[in-house]
Simulated assay, not measured.
Amino acid sequence: MLVGHAETPAHRMHLVFLFAVAIGCFAGAALNYFGAITHLLYVAILTIFGLVVLAMWWHARRYEPAQRIAVIFCAGAVFAILPLNWIFNQGLDGPSLMILVVVAGYAFGALVIRPWQRVLLMACFVIVPSALIGADYLWPDWTPAYASRELQAIDAAVTYYICVALQFALISGFFRRFRSEQRLIQEYAEQLRESSRLDSLTGLLNHGAFYSALDAAISGEQQPRHHCALVLYDLDHFKRINDSRGHLYGDETLRRFARLLEDTARTFGATAGRCGGEEFAVLLRPASSSTVQAMDDALRARCAAQPLAHGVIRVSGGVAFSSADTTIRWMERADEALYTAKTRGRDRTLFDPVAAADPGAIAEPMHELQRRVAAGS
C-alpha cells in the first residue's frame, strides 16, 4: 500500500520518505496550531505543503517519476519551506536547521545527478541557510520569539522525533539499496566467473577449466580400479571444411558437434570441453572401457542422425585412462592414441594400450583397437 508497485529499493526509499515528510508536515501544522507557536498563515502553508508532498507520493507511487519528484521536493524545501519556517518559526531559536540537515541527507544520498548539478545542489544548501543565519544575526528581532520556554522545548522535541523518523526512512532505504546492489554484484561476479570458464563459441568448458577438471580427477583418485577416462576428439578434415565451405560453416560445424558432444557426455555423467581449434575432450569418472565405448558409439550415432548441410560430422578419437599419471602425461597419451586413429584412416576412436592400471581393463580396449584397425584396413 505504502510503496505501491515499486520494484527498486531506490524507488521504495523515495516513496517512504515522501510519505513520512507529508505526515511530518501535518504533525508540525497540528503542533503549531494547537500550541499557538506560529502564525496561522504558516500553519496553512505547512498543511498545503504536506498535501502537495502527499500528491507527489501518490503520483510517484503510480507512475514512478521518483527522481524528478525528488528534485522538485528538494527545491521546494530549500527555497520555500526552509525560509518560511525560519521566518515564522523563531529563526535560530527554532528547529529549521534540524529539518534542513535531514532534507540535505535525502538530497545528497537519494538523487542521482550529474557532478555539476551536485555542486549546485550543495551550494543551495550552503547559501540559503547562511543567508538566513546572517539575517538573524544582523536583525535579531526580525523573527518572532517563542511565547515560553515550554513551547520551545515542545517544538524542539516534536521536530526532533519527526526528523528521527525521516532519517530512519532514509537509512532503511539506503540499506535496502545496498543489499540489492550487493546481490546484483554477486550475481554478475558469478556470471563472469562462469563465462570465464566457458568457450565463447561452443559453450563448453574452455582449455583452462577442462585442465582444472583433469587435475581434480587425478588428485581425487584413491582406488586404482576407479579409473578416469580421457577422450580426445578431433574433427576429421576440418581445415578442408573451412577452406571449401567457409568459416561460418566451420563455426556451425563446431557448434553442432559441441552440442552433440555435450548431450552425449551429460547422458553418461561426463564432462565435456573444447581444448582449442577443432579439438574437444571428454572426462568420464569413474569409467571402464565398456563405458567409453558406449559413449563413443552414442556420440557417433547422434552425429549420423543429425547431419549438417554438407554431410555428417566425422571425428577421430583417442582414449587414455589416468593410471595416476600427471595431467600433462595423461593428455599426451590420449593425444598419441588420437594421432594413431588419424593415421589409420580417421573416423574411429582408439585406446591407448597402456592406459588402464589393471590388465582386466586393458583387455577390452586392446580388443577394440584390433577390431577397428582390421575394419579400416
Rank of each mutant, 00 (worst) to 15 (best):
Y161H: 09
W58F: 10
D155G: 05
Y146L: 08
V78A: 03
W57T: 03
A55H: 11
D141K: 15
A104P: 11
S148C: 07
R177L: 15
C163G: 07
I69A: 06
A75L: 12
M56G: 05
A157D: 03
R176S: 10
I162F: 03
I133C: 08
R62T: 06
E187I: 05
V78T: 01
T143C: 15
Y63G: 00
L92C: 08
A156M: 14
V101L: 14
W116E: 09
I87M: 11
F49K: 03
S96E: 12
I162E: 01
D155A: 06
G91W: 05
V52Y: 12
H59V: 02
Q117H: 10
T159V: 07
Y146F: 15
L170V: 00
F108A: 07
A80Y: 09
L51V: 14
I133M: 05
A55C: 10
P129N: 01
L51Y: 10
P144Q: 15
V101N: 06
E190D: 08
R118A: 04
V103P: 02
A169R: 00
I48F: 04
W116T: 07
R179T: 13
E64W: 06
I99D: 13
R61I: 02
T47S: 09
F79N: 06
C74M: 03
S172Q: 09
A75D: 07
T47D: 03
Q182S: 13
I171V: 13
R183E: 12
V52P: 01
I127S: 00
I185F: 12
L121Q: 04
A147N: 11
A123M: 05
A75R: 13
F73L: 13
L120H: 04
V164L: 11
L151S: 15
L97G: 08
L82V: 06
A66K: 04
W116P: 05
A107G: 06
